[in-house]
């Protein structure tokens, strides 16, 4: 690891004042479960590290009911989500997704904000070939081994997949994130927070170098909504999924009034499938309608060469999430 300047501010204002103007100046340290390995591997080399874990006040640390919704501080540990009654009872899909993430040790350290801002696991990125995995202007992903890469939103030059298995559930619930800087705060729909970078100098989200993600706000869950989160994972536990889906179904008697279908690990951003949602609208949930929604979700998917099987997996993930939601309890 390279030498860096270390700051551990006690106040939010101090913390924001320590952030840099451009990427590479500063990184924010919270759980460190991703950042420290990036620094050890010399992939990220900040001049300054701002440890925000000591910042005082409930804003960053608490889960708080707000009006009918809930606010989750950026420093809330993943392990705390399933055990919080506000989350477990009202947002069970989020509790499930958090329980499925990584390992108990990691969930005890990793934070909500860090999970949203974690960097892609693309093996070209992690081997030092840059976020886009390019060498001499050519995409190593396209020329090489893309078995885990994107099947949607993969027009290039970004082919990695969005790594969070929790974010799709948050988006399905309509989460917003609060981004704070020394000059103020802004609120962004989580769905819009993620962007597909067009060049090596961009990041995969809308966070600016001088900003800090402070809060995740969830609106009240739609009354009577049925939810489920499904991960296609090779190992039973502690494994990056090959495809995931979060499904939220608002019901009108026996038929789906409207649906939110959000896929993970299939595109450089969490992938909101309006096609799948439309396919379900006005339909009862059956094996056939769920499968048709899965088919609609991957209608525009494209293999990069070695990841064609992921199209099938994404389709299955959508189908199973919808079927599980219909069978499961109410949100």
């Amino acid at each position: 690891m390279r030498a860096f300047e270390y700051a551990a501010p006690k106040e939010r204002r101090q913390a924001l004042g320590l952030l840099g103007r451009s990427w590479g100046d500063t990184e924010i340290l919270a759980g460190g479960t991703d950042l420290l390995s990036l620094m050890k591997d010399d992939i990220v080399t900040p001049k300054r590290l701002v440890n925000i874990k000591g910042v005082a006040g409930p804003e960053l640390h608490a889960i708080m009911r707000k009006q009918n919704g809930v606010q989750i501080g950026a420093l809330v540990h993943l392990a705390d989500l399933p055990s919080a009654s506000d989350i477990r009872e009202r947002y069970p899909m989020l509790a499930d997704a958090a329980m499925e993430a990584a390992s108990p040790q990691i969930r005890n350290m990793a934070t909500m904000g860090g999970n949203i801002c974690q960097r892609p696991r693309c093996w070209y990125f992690r081997n030092g070939f840059g976020l886009l995995g390019q060498k001499d202007g050519k995409s190593l992903v396209m020329e090489g081994d893309n078995r885990y890469h994107a099947i949607l939103g993969n027009e290039g030059p970004a082919y990695f997949v969005s790594p969070s298995s929790i974010v799709p559930s948050l988006i399905a619930y309509g989460a917003k994130v609060t981004l704070a800087s020394a000059s103020g705060t802004r609120e962004v729909a989580l769905e819009k927070f993620f962007v597909i970078p067009k060049d090596e100098n961009q990041r995969e989200h809308d966070l600016r170098p001088d900003e800090m993600l402070t809060l995740v706000t969830l609106p009240a869950p739609p009354a009577g909504a049925k939810v489920a989160h499904y991960e296609v994972r090779q190992k039973a536990a502690f494994d990056w999924p090959l495809a995931t889906c979060a499904a939220l179904l608002e019901m009108n008697g026996g038929t789906v009034k409207s649906a939110r279908i959000v896929m993970g690990h299939v595109a450089p951003i969490p992938w909101v499938s309006n096609e799948a949602a439309q396919a379900m609208a006005g339909k009862p949930v059956t094996e056939e309608t769920a499968d048709a929604a899965g088919a609609a979700a991957v209608a525009n998917a494209k293999s990069l060469g070695r990841n064609g099987y992921k199209i099938k997996l994404a389709r299955v993930a959508v189908k199973r999430a919808i079927l599980m939601a219909a069978k499961g309890g109410q949100a």
């Binding site: 081994d145 190992k235 502690f238 494994d239």
Partner: peptide
């Protein structure tokens, strides 16, 4: 079920030189 040393054809480096993509069976497996 899991183990495989994966090399990149163009750069010739091992791509899964870690324990997240060089998978080993866990308790649940």
């Amino acid at each position: 079920l899991f183990e495989e040393k994966i090399y990149d054809p163009s750069t010739g480096v091992m791509l899964n030189d870690n324990m997240e993509f060089y998978r080993l069976a866990g308790l649940g497996d």
